[in-house]
Simulated assay, not measured.
Amino acid sequence: MNDEVRPRGQRARLWVSWLVVSVLLGYGVAQTAVTAAKLFTS
């Protein structure tokens, strides 16, 4: 896929979508790590 084919607004929306997904995924991983640490240390 060529970047010049997509309109500028669509590319910006794609970046925002990836950013939201990355933040949520990072939050889920952090919560899992905290929960696992609590399970294994108590």
Results as ranks from 00 to 15, higher is better:
7 P>E: 03
9 G>C: 06
9 G>W: 08
9 G>Q: 10
10 Q>V: 07
10 Q>C: 11
10 Q>T: 09
11 R>V: 01
11 R>C: 00
12 A>R: 12
12 A>G: 10
13 R>G: 09
13 R>D: 10
13 R>Q: 14
14 L>W: 05
15 W>E: 12
15 W>P: 02
16 V>D: 04
16 V>R: 06
16 V>P: 01
16 V>W: 06
17 S>C: 10
17 S>E: 09
18 W>F: 07
18 W>H: 09
18 W>P: 01
18 W>K: 02
19 L>S: 15
19 L>A: 15
20 V>G: 08
20 V>W: 10
21 V>N: 01
21 V>P: 00
22 S>H: 02
22 S>Y: 01
23 V>S: 01
23 V>L: 05
25 L>E: 02
25 L>G: 07
26 G>W: 00
27 Y>F: 10
28 G>N: 01
29 V>R: 06
29 V>Q: 06
29 V>L: 12
29 V>S: 05
31 Q>N: 14
32 T>G: 15
33 A>D: 08
33 A>E: 08
34 V>A: 08
34 V>G: 07
34 V>R: 10
35 T>G: 03
36 A>I: 15
37 A>C: 14
37 A>M: 13
37 A>H: 15
37 A>V: 15
37 A>Y: 15
38 K>Q: 09
38 K>A: 07
39 L>K: 07
40 F>I: 12
41 T>Y: 11
41 T>E: 11
